[in-house]
Amino acid sequence: MVKKIFLLCFLVGSIHASVYKNNCVSCHEKMPVKIDKFFYRYLLKYSSEDALKNALIKYLKNPTKEKTILQEGLLNRFGVKEKTTLNDKDLKKAVDEYWEIYKIFGKLK
């Protein structure tokens, strides 16, 4: 029983520790366009895992109008997002998790 409680606590703790959920999903949830749509737009432009992650990290570190994949209408409505406050390590963690959740590999039947 003690073990189970300990495991539960650990799991809850690890959820709380997800940089992606805390720092990305939390904001995007409130937006009319869901976070997965951004992923597919990135995929449409960058194709591979490395290219997508690099482009995303580059954008998050220094978001500009030129680099965004946002459609013009949305860009006018929401504007360019602010620079990330995450350090490189956390940013990479968040992007990696984002990739793992929405990647196409292994999902097609």
Partner: peptide, 23 residues
């Protein structure tokens, strides 16, 4: 929908820009 489109006239495959097979 996650079913890859198939055709009797041909086989097909898709690859990303790093030439990694997607399907």
């Amino acid at each position: 929908n996650r079913v890859y489109p198939r055709d009797v006239r041909f086989n097909s495959a898709i690859y990303d820009s790093s030439k990694k097979e997607i399907f």
